[in-house]
Design a binder for these strands. Sequence first.
DNA 1: AAATTTGGTTGCTTTATGCAACCTACTATC
DNA 2: GATAGTAGGTTGCATAAAGCAACCAAATTT
Lengths: 162, 162
Amino acid sequence: MVKPHTQNCPVAGMLNIVGDQWTWLILREAFYGASRFKEFERNTGIAKNLLSNRLARLVDEGLLKKFDIGQMGTRYAYSLTPKGRSLNTVMIAMLQWGNEHLYAEGEAPVEIIERQTGVPIGPLVLQTRDGRRLEPKDIKTVPGPGAKGAVCQRLAAIKDNP
Amino acid sequence: MVKPHTQNCPVAGMLNIVGDQWTWLILREAFYGASRFKEFERNTGIAKNLLSNRLARLVDEGLLKKFDIGQMGTRYAYSLTPKGRSLNTVMIAMLQWGNEHLYAEGEAPVEIIERQTGVPIGPLVLQTRDGRRLEPKDIKTVPGPGAKGAVCQRLAAIKDNP
DNA sequence: AAATTTGGTTGCTTTATGCAACCTACTATC
DNA sequence: GATAGTAGGTTGCATAAAGCAACCAAATTT
């Protein structure tokens, strides 16, 4: 994608910030605890110029913070900000989808486990704000308070598909 | 991205399939109920050649199914397969992140509500397989049964960051 | 019968990717 | 103390993809 999306849409907006594949691999590494340029480079296989570019963007967007950890400003560490860390839900959803659809039963290369028990966690679940569990069929997408013009019309036109 | 990722990783694998921005906007529309070429075109702003390409890929990957709905094979409808529909968790996570970080309080352009009550749903939550709720700090990423070589080493090297 | 819609394809220009080479400041080794 | 290697980049170039406009045939609407 060359031009940013201009739609008044949270999905389009998030894609403008983290719509890039390399960016997700970098974030994956950051979630795994990577912090140095070389670590990102080695663990993702990205080219240096692209890594340089993506890290700068991520810092710009406030998803990573860059620390100077050398004597004269030639060693750096990157770490997730709270905003970056809040992408964990998306990351987990992606990882779980991949595990489910890309590998045979019992062949998942990565697992997310409960720290205490060591047991793999379950899939992310929908819930109401007060904690009642919901199924996909229980929810519906509608124009929000900030809906404008085309987006509003588009959403209002959604046929109710229960 | 020009070359597919070769890492033995569910995130990289899923990005090979749905790592493209336009693909996500197309999927968004599919979740909103769009089914026709023109609908996708109008509602996303994508160029026809790219749309054609992305739809073919999505059909190829088994995320969309293409139905012939015309008399002589010139009218088509696309709809989500179960595999495609199972991306809803990722989509919802993206939408919620966008709503949270891209707009001021009460300015979200799109809302996901509970069908019955009309009240916006809460954020996706982590849980164990038997339904106990978990916090981000309660989980940990480890090599799975199918972990191989580099990925295995990389994951094993994760410093425990509680 | 004419105009419009659908679902594309083709060709062209601009932008991004991927790769290799290079570079400077530090760090570890002998 | 000299040498080699590492960290964190930048630059230049070939190739691939994005973005845009023009075109098109079959079907549908007016």
